[in-house]
Amino acid sequence: MVAVSYIGWGLPLLLIPVSFLTYRMKNKKKKRYLVYIFILFVAFIFNLTGISFKVDFLDSTLYLVVSFIICEFCWSITRIKNRPLVTLFVICGVILFGAAYKDWLVGGPQKNNSLRATTIKDRYIIRENVYTVKERNTFTAKGMTKTIALYRDITKHPFETRIGEYVLPEGYFKAQIRYHWTRTPRGVKLNLIGDSDTLWSLGDGL
């Protein structure tokens, strides 16, 4: 399990060198790029509509694949003959890459292995609509954070739609959050209650 944790944590670090190797490959480059464009289009639609996979592993895989494709496209910058400009672009690319995976890298293999998965905390059913509340703990440079997200299942498909999410403020990481559901003309409203205070509300149309 320890080896698996380190391998999973180290995957983002392999994106840059592996993408350079595939960038240098000339075989079936056009077909490969067509596949890349299709994957980027699907990822764009997912992000635009809030659709995600119900299985965390598939979401993480899609994110890694998109990052890999972007890395490979960025290697095209090396064709520029202006060496100082290329160096500047590479440095900026590494900085942006580090910013995108900062929390993952800072957390280390052990913390990310135990924290990256989401936990289903509650469900609410209205006829054919199934609403799910998920909590995700994340280790960041500033400490532990907890994100609570509300999803609506897309029935008979391995997808769900993210309705909204809320990051708990500092001091509430270990707090016991209660969920209060109410029906609305548009669907549901979910109140996040900590102690006696309503911290936030999520729901259809909010």
Rank of each mutant, 00 (worst) to 15 (best):
M1I: 13
V2A: 14
V2C: 07
A3Y: 13
S5F: 15
S5T: 09
G8H: 11
W9Y: 13
G10I: 09
L11Q: 01
L13G: 04
L13I: 10
S19A: 12
S19G: 05
F20H: 06
T22L: 11
T22H: 00
Y23G: 01
R24G: 04
R24N: 07
M25S: 11
K26N: 09
K28D: 08
K31M: 12
R32T: 11
Y33C: 02
L34C: 09
V35K: 03
V35W: 11
Y36V: 02
I37F: 14
F38G: 07
F38C: 10
I39Y: 00
I39D: 00
I39P: 01
F41H: 06
I45C: 10
I45R: 03
F46D: 00
F46G: 01
F46Q: 01
I51K: 03
S52I: 06
F53P: 03
F53M: 06
V55P: 04
V55S: 13
D56P: 05
L58M: 14
S60F: 15
T61E: 07
Y63L: 08
L64I: 12
S67V: 03
S67E: 00
F68E: 05
I69L: 00
C74K: 02
S76Y: 09
S76R: 06
S76I: 01
I77H: 02
R83W: 08
L85Y: 09
L85E: 00
V86R: 07
V86K: 02
T87C: 10
L88R: 06
L88Y: 10
C92R: 05
I95M: 10
I95A: 14
I95H: 05
I95F: 13
L96D: 01
A100Y: 12
K102E: 12
D103Y: 01
D103S: 13
G107A: 15
G107L: 03
N113Q: 12
S114H: 12
L115W: 11
R116P: 01
A117G: 06
A117S: 14
T118W: 13
K121S: 13
D122H: 07
I125M: 08
I125K: 15
I125L: 11
R127H: 11
E128R: 10
Y131I: 04
V133N: 01
K134W: 03
E135R: 08
N137P: 05
T140Q: 06
A141F: 13
G143W: 12
G143P: 09
M144Q: 12
T145Q: 14
T145L: 12
T147S: 10
I148C: 01
Y151G: 04
Y151T: 05
Y151E: 04
R152P: 02
D153F: 03
P158H: 10
E160Q: 15
T161Q: 14
T161E: 10
I163Y: 03
G164A: 06
E165D: 13
E165L: 11
Y166T: 00
Y166C: 01
V167R: 11
V167T: 15
L168Q: 06
L168Y: 08
L168P: 02
E170C: 04
G171A: 07
G171T: 08
F173Q: 11
F173Y: 15
F173R: 07
K174Q: 13
Q176H: 12
I177K: 02
T184G: 05
T184D: 08
T184A: 09
P185D: 11
P185S: 10
P185H: 07
R186P: 00
V188G: 05
V188N: 07
V188A: 07
K189N: 12
I193H: 05
G194I: 07
D195F: 12
S196C: 03
D197H: 13
L199Q: 08
W200G: 04
L202A: 07
L206Y: 14
